[in-house]
Design a protein around this nucleic acid. Sequence first.
RNA 1: GCACUCGUAGCUCAGCUGGAUAGAGCACCCGCCUUCUAAGCGGGCGGUCUCAGGUUCGAAUCCUGACGGGUGUACCA
Length: 565
Amino acid sequence: MKLKEEVNKVIQTAFQKTGIDAQPINVSEATKPEFGDYQFNGAMALSKELRKNPREIASGILENLDLSGIVSKAEIAGPGFINLWLNDNVIAEKCREAREDKRLGVSKKSAPIKVVVDYSGPNMAKQMHVGHLRSTIIGDTLSNLLEFLGDEVIRQNHIGDWGTQFGMLIAYLEERGEDGSGSLKDLEQFYKDAKKRFDEDEAFADKAREYVVKIQGGDEHCLNLWQKFIDISLGHCEEVYDKLCVRLTREDVKAESFYNEDLPEVVADLAEEGRLKESEGAQCVFFEDEEIPVIVQKGDGGYLYATTDLAALRYRANILGAKRISYVVDARQGEHFRQIFKVAKMSGFVPEDVKLEHVAFGTMMDKGGKPFKTRDGGTVKLIDLLDEAVVKAKAAIKEKDDYSEEEVERLAKIIGIGAVKYADLSINRESNYIFNWDKMLSFEGNTSLYMQYAYARIQSIFRRYRGEIKGSVVITDVLEHRLGVMLLRFEEVLDRAAEDAAPNQITTYLYELVTLFMRFYEQNPILKEGVDEEVKLSRLVLADMTAKTIKQGLDILGIDVVDKL
RNA sequence: GCACUCGUAGCUCAGCUGGAUAGAGCACCCGCCUUCUAAGCGGGCGGUCUCAGGUUCGAAUCCUGACGGGUGUACCA
């Protein structure tokens, strides 16, 4: 059920009766409560075309407006706005229905598609660092969201497991005569040590290069070591995913190496089509309108990032059958994606009707507005950041109330990790943002804890009430009305967020919803004495619907709720 | 140099498919706990939406230019 569409229809019908052939009708949410629930601004736009005063057009529509259904009141305001109020009874009934529905009244897409979401993509040679946070959680949210709306989502974790650094790592592993299980515990250190050897010892470096050739040539011994290394490394990533409550699994891994055999094919196919041109020894695809080409094969015959990405695009569109392929990758790679998308489309690697998008995001900055680093200038390990979030949450919880040790432990994880994720997801993904512990864990304003707190308060009402929550909704005041409308807008918010791949549209909505509920709850007693039974039941239903919406919304963001806080 | 991107309250950010008097949170000031969790709620203070033009009935939003910040600019990923 899409509220907005229903309102659009009412206006549409009025237009038909008026005899005006209007373009697609699109009402928008009212900018202020005193302007009703929705507003229609089309009269002004039509005024020139029809050579009529916009207020005149508006009043023509008003005369033909059906006020017996979802819209119950309409007014002309200002230069020709039509403000629309929705019918209390209709809202009430829809809320009741939605609450009894598992999907909260959110319909599944009538024409679902296959979507590939490429996200996280850690490098197997190193620990995951804060730079991986955004890709991982934005990608996961987008996947959850599309899945909830009915699309078939194929998560793809394009891990970096192929390249010169692996020769170096294996050489070092060999040299130390270990099987890796011990020394790889601290991957970061292992990488650093190996790098040091590589830089200092020429013989070691040569050996490392030999290993690269061996791996790529399929040498069994080297491949075994390499595989072992990847397994351990992936295990580290999974530890992070687990902490982050991200739903990526090993099945979603489709590593760079997977496309290895297809790379010569990619180049050959491009050559066959006559798209390749040699330039300074490298094989390139040039564009008519751009100076810088895409290089698909180096002068020494090696392949590049772009080659692998083209192979991956082809695989995803043709073998996996995706109709939308979303890359959740740092904005700095915008140029790269713009170019390979162009090549993929013009070479026919990807059919015309497949939507390719770079879901770009900005960089995480420190307080001074510089890229987020440790004090000594290194990258901040993601696992350390998450652990710190939990520690800080723990401190905040202890300060507030006395819980048992296990309870503190459990809550701190949910709250701390939720805070990190929410703080990130609530920012418009394209802008850079300043990472700030104090703000993140201050738990005021638009934060995960505010949502979790509201959820817990509602659960507390139910614990006190004990009875079954069942009944119809009666709207008795303006806050109830607004809460009802807000709850019913959930679907259109999700649709739009999915379309724009914008998690912050969900957080903004949840924040507005919770703020509204807090006010409603403050002013409208539920279980207190003197509340009419029917009103009590109705308010319980609204409270329950609010809780369920918060839970569902946070679930899409990959954040848990707690029953008690 | 060229390209992309951002510039909104003291701070951190929404809003950007054009709509009415530009919104939050923090900070600061004031009020609300013997009654459903005060990690809450209400009120106040705070803005020439970087600047200059343009398009439009209407511009924070679209276009052009300037200034300022960030990023990218062929054999890394």
